[in-house]
Write a protein that binds this DNA or RNA. Structure first.
Lengths: 158, 158
DNA sequence: TTGATAATGAAAATCGTTTTCAATAAGGAG
DNA sequence: CTCCTTATTGAAAACGATTTTCATTATCAA
């Protein structure tokens, strides 16, 4: 198959070799799913999506891979309060640094990425201060806003 | 028992009457536990603590009460990533507005309440902007920092 | 091509949390 | 103070997301 040597070998391949990990079919499939969506997928969402192409891949492997990817820093794991974890690619073409607005009415999650200047300013100061005050090295942060989206606000008013 | 009329009747009593809720022994016990600690208690922690004084109070009731208190806004529910929810009184004598530093090494959680000026500034702008941009009414926010505490950093270096 | 071993899948186990349902108790009415 | 309505409770069972077990398979360095 000339010219196909690199099919299925995108930007993340090098990451695995480094850690002594193997780049397997299920792992590639899971990364593919994550890199193609901007939704906030649960393990089962990912499993179902992978299952369309690779019916033999089990849910267990999805969980294991997600754990590994999170450890490697390639994905983020979120808790939006509905009892199941959600996953997002932490880098790559599609993903920009962002946070989440969570509607407590309908559980809808809105990504937002504005106000990053203010945020950066705040974080820079906070992280520096915290590092000194508590001798704590900050690696990452989580910011989430809770409230009511337009629809739920109207529903409540009615 | 003269003089004991108000024992077990602290500041939160009024809150229940208003909502049509009953102020029961288990609820008081749970609130007492929460108001006496500055730790981040899980449902089971609270259950065990309540159990010392009221052995008949069940874990189910603890969960139900915590859910109610969270709904009423009297407590906050946190997820520090260890698979069990943690609870904190949201107001009262002991509690000031604060956030959490979570050590990903040993799972220790440090409260911090400094840098609130910067935070307030950031939040004010963010909330105003988000409200306008997404027609979203922000009710609350969650900020958590992840990293390594001094001990885990030293352990890692060794 | 081969071998060591990392990775996998199916099923069972785990474990925090929720539901069920009959029994109990809070607190307003009388 | 007593009675009555019904919110609340406790024990046990159910639930559901995630993890573990263990025998089998597949990756990839030599």
């Amino acid at each position: 198959m000339p010219g196909r040597r690199n099919v299925g070998s995108p930007w993340w391949h090098g990451r695995f070799r480094g850690g002594g990990y193997r780049l397997t079919v299920p792992r590639q499939a899971i990364l593919n799913v994550l890199s193609r969506t901007s939704r906030h997928l649960s393990a089962e969402d990912i499993y179902l999506e992978v299952h369309k192409v690779h019916p033999h891949v089990g849910l267990t492997t999805v969980y294991r891979t997600l754990e590994l990817l999170a450890e490697m820093g390639m994905i983020f794991k979120f808790d939006f309060g509905d009892g199941r974890a959600r996953y997002e690619l932490s880098e790559g073409p599609k993903s920009a640094h962002h946070h989440h607005l969570i509607c407590t009415g309908c559980r809808r999650v809105i990504d937002y990425s504005g106000f990053m200047d203010e945020e950066l300013e705040f974080l820079k100061r906070a992280e520096k201060g915290l590092a000194k005050k508590y001798d704590f090295e900050i690696k990452s942060h989580l910011i989430q806003f809770y409230g009511l989206c337009d629809k739920c606000r109207k529903k409540k008013a009615a």
